[in-house]
């Protein structure tokens, strides 16, 4: 018995995590496409606009992260640098030098700045593995990942407030290519 190709396409998207295709490629039915104009990433569709954040209301733990607090702060530092037009949506955002993100993160943390930068480098990789950021280690740049496209507009107000309070990247004029 063969599996319904639509079902298989959705299952495949879950197995592969957040993968991209050429922007002109069709998005399988039942999935959401997040496009940056060049590529399109396949994201799940959840019923009635609910998100996994609903788990909190039911005292149900989501998949564990290694260092959730640190990972969230590094994501915030990265968004501070890549999501510069805060009135717009975070996706697709813009590219920022990794070094700026590390500086912002070091400025948010107490203690040894070198150590903070090293921790943050590891977290950037983890956030990139899971589609929250798109990290280009060769170019030394980072931009928002397609998963942020799943954030609902009405949930963004507190995040915008938080980002406005974070320190600015010091190297504002750094090349953004």
């Amino acid at each position: 018995m063969t599996v319904d190709p639509h079902v298989l396409a959705r299952a495949r998207a879950r197995v592969l995590g957040v993968v991209s295709a050429d922007a002109s490629a069709p998005v399988p039915s039942g999935l959401t496409g997040a496009s940056d104009g060049t590529r399109v990433w396949l994201l799940p569709q959840w019923p009635d606009g609910a998100t996994p954040a609903l788990l909190e209301e039911y005292d149900t733990a989501p998949m564990p992260l290694d260092r959730p607090g640190q990972q969230r702060r590094v994501l915030a530092a990265a968004l501070r640098c890549c999501w510069t037009k805060l009135d717009d949506a975070p996706w697709p955002g813009g590219e920022a030098p990794v070094i700026d993100v590390l500086e912002v993160y070091a400025g948010m943390s107490r203690g040894d700045a070198d150590l903070a930068r090293r921790w943050a480098t590891g977290e950037l990789r983890r956030l990139s593995d899971t589609g929250w950021l798109l990290l280009d280690e060769t170019a030394g740049t980072v931009r928002p990942g397609p998963r942020v496209a799943l954030w609902r507009e009405e949930s963004l107000a507190s995040l915008r407030d938080l980002l406005r309070r974070l320190p600015q990247p010091v190297r504002e004029d750094a090349p953004h290519e």
């Binding site: 019923p47 009635d48 996994p52 609903l54 788990l55 039911y58 998949m63």
Partner: peptide
């Protein structure tokens, strides 16, 4: 009923551990 179905769907799909049916 609809919101109960949605809650259970997201719970079984995204929880780290099996979820007790008493809660859903």
């Amino acid at each position: 009923r609809r919101s109960e179905l949605v809650a259970a769907y997201l719970a079984v799909e995204h929880a780290a551990e099996p979820v007790p049916e008493v809660r859903f």
